[in-house]
């Protein structure tokens, strides 16, 4: 276990070194007109965080993302459990979900904007619709794949429906559900940022669009770095727990 943690740490450091080296090389080949070097970006990022400008945007994005993720999880899990429990409903709705999933979500954005107007609710809705379907599909399959003999064991003990879900179905399906939540996390983040990029006056996505418009390369690079570091860290942590849960099976 110890050795594994050390290995993970070594891998992470190695990855960071490689990415930084590649970045530096790119900087050398494209020059100041297109990029900033890792060192310059780091310096600008530090300056950004010691200033006032970024904080309201960061808070806005974090709040939108948190609410969107919560919504995606609650709605996705509910749909997933309902369809997982109910064969007939699953047969009817699964193809619909898959079809919906394959639509480029961006095509729905104008409609969402008309429904919610510019601002927080539209972003949240746009983030959530990215996460709901994968979470629902993973959960549905997880519940469906719970081994029948585990459910029979619960039946023999006269477990009620609620207790069956809580103490057998949910824990048995948890590893797959967690994978769904992990995927949902990434997609919801993308959705939220996309929402901010195209119709919003606040948030990191908006800042990013703005930086492109003003050709503010320093800001652009700093924001991209912040987002990548956040997403990568979260993914690594979630993947770590994902593997830990799956290891028991």
């Amino acid at each position: 276990m110890k050795a594994q943690t050390r290995n993970a740490a070594i891998n992470t450091v190695l990855l960071l070194v490689l990415v930084t080296a590649a970045w530096q090389l790119l900087y050398w080949s494209f020059g100041d007109a297109a990029l900033r070097s890792p060192a310059q970006t780091l310096a600008y990022t530090v300056k950004l965080f010691s200033g006032e400008m970024i904080w309201p945007h960061l808070r806005e994005t974090m709040a939108a993302f948190a609410v969107a993720l919560l919504l995606a999880a609650v709605i996705g899990l509910s749909i997933g459990f309902t369809l997982g429990y109910n064969r007939f409903a699953a047969d009817v709705f699964e193809p619909m979900l898959v079809a919906l999933y394959s639509i480029p979500k961006i095509t729905l954005y104008p409609i969402l904007l008309l429904m919610f107007g510019l601002g927080m609710p539209a972003k949240v809705a746009f983030g959530a619709i990215h996460g709901i379907i994968p979470i629902a599909l993973f959960t549905m399959n997880a519940v469906r794949n719970v081994r029948v003999v585990l459910i029979k064991t619960g039946l023999v003990l006269n477990l009620g429906r609620g207790e069956m879900v809580r103490s057998i179905l949910f824990p048995a399906a948890l590893p797959e559900i967690f994978t769904g939540l992990r995927v949902g996390f990434s997609l919801t983040l993308i959705g939220t940022l996309l929402g901010e990029m195209f119709a919003s006056q606040r948030g990191l996505g908006y800042l990013l669009m703005n930086a492109i418009g003003l050709h503010n390369i320093d800001l652009l690079m700093a924001l991209t770095t912040i987002l990548i570091v956040f997403a990568a860290t979260a993914s690594i942590v979630l993947l770590h727990y994902d593997r830990k849960i799956h290891a028991r099976l």
Binding site: R147, V149, L150, K152, T153, V156, N158, I168, P171, A172, L174, R248, L249
Partner: peptide, 16 residues
């Protein structure tokens, strides 16, 4: 009530 079953397949709960 009062009936205990040991199934043919492995019915251990892997998370416990």
């Amino acid at each position: 009530d009062g009936v205990g079953v040991v199934f043919q397949e492995d019915a251990c709960f892997p998370w416990m």
